[in-house]
Design a protein around this nucleic acid. Sequence first.
DNA 1: TTGGACAGACCATGCGTTCTGTTTTACGAT
DNA 2: ATCGTAAAACAGAACGCATGGTCTGTCCAA
Lengths: 220, 220
Amino acid sequence: MGAGTKDQPNVTPRRVAQTRSRILEAVITSLDEVGYSECSINRVQQLAGVSRGALTHHFPSKEDIMVQTLLQLLAPVRGPASPTEEAQLLQPTPEMGTLPDQLQHLWHRVINTREGRALMEILVAARTDPALSARITPALWAYNDDFNRNIAHLYQASAAHAKEFSLLWSICRSFMRGLHSQAAYERDPEIITKMVDLFGRIMAPHLSPRAPAEGPPAAP
Amino acid sequence: MGAGTKDQPNVTPRRVAQTRSRILEAVITSLDEVGYSECSINRVQQLAGVSRGALTHHFPSKEDIMVQTLLQLLAPVRGPASPTEEAQLLQPTPEMGTLPDQLQHLWHRVINTREGRALMEILVAARTDPALSARITPALWAYNDDFNRNIAHLYQASAAHAKEFSLLWSICRSFMRGLHSQAAYERDPEIITKMVDLFGRIMAPHLSPRAPAEGPPAAP
DNA sequence: TTGGACAGACCATGCGTTCTGTTTTACGAT
DNA sequence: ATCGTAAAACAGAACGCATGGTCTGTCCAA
């Protein structure tokens, strides 16, 4: 497993990052599978396979755990810090497809995933937790700004709603978020897909994809 | 069931109903203000001003509390059992107004209320609680059916989406649900109102109000 | 006298936090 | 190169406390 034969200056940072990552992954899995109220420190520790000391060393309080988890969940969509993952999420497939296709992609690959559901658990929990809310609000604002800026490279509003572009995408995201609590109780899972499709067709006239000029988002 | 002629034979049933109501109200308030994970039995008991014995007598387990609270929250929108409250919720004001107005009404008076937020807390919590989920799913299905049936008296889909009427309203409800987790973190609260308005204007061409013929919903 | 409505004490369990150790790494002085 | 030492990384026990559930007891109407 030894990485560098000559120098391994990052063997410890790597190990540290791995421990942190294992913990955060366990938090995400727990949030998704048992929800916020059952996402206890004991459960996370056991699932991550780390000791209590390691956990409290990296995250002194439960609030820290949730804040850092949220930051990790928000990171892929944020700025071009990690172009690889961003490409998977917002930079759509080579053929961009219509808006309904794009929304289906967003729902199945981004929103309705372990990470997406975990994010929702934190958002809902933070609504009634002032301390947590205060700590995550700046990150959420920055996330919104980044999302709007990135998505503006790919879509544009119709002439009728020129100045309401970000509002249109906020509506899309709200719809997707609400789908979370709907999907769990729908008789026929196919209905969710149909809802996304119909919603996409309704929104399509107001939100058209940009001509695929060469990409300014990738370069810098 | 009429009141007693002389004495008060229903003084006890009234007292019982009052105790139950005080408990459920306390649950709703707690869910709204501190969320599901902090909605403990002790808190509810203290807020309702009842003893522990009374609480466990009416609701043997915490799961029972949540199930009964959900049923209470769903009751007003369901069948014509209580036409008074239904009138406030779905039977819009004498002048029905446009769809954006109707959605604003729904958001401000139904969804974004103590009861609406409490309902969301239960829905989110039940997603990861199989026992709770199993007990509330039938009620949620019936609620959906009742809602669709009642709203069909007031609106109709455009010709293009004739058979997708209930799907259209499901989209509306999903959007509203998602607004919950958006409203808590929006910089400018006015944006929520703008989102509802724009969404209403986008949906309006596909969901037109029916001509106000005399009402079949009132008479059974 | 019975059973429903309520009152309040009691209990085992799991919670989040804090604390004291032990191992590993980093790094400047030698 | 080697050593010494401080800090980081990790391990695990212990603590105080709130939780949900249970259990016995009291009141009152039927």
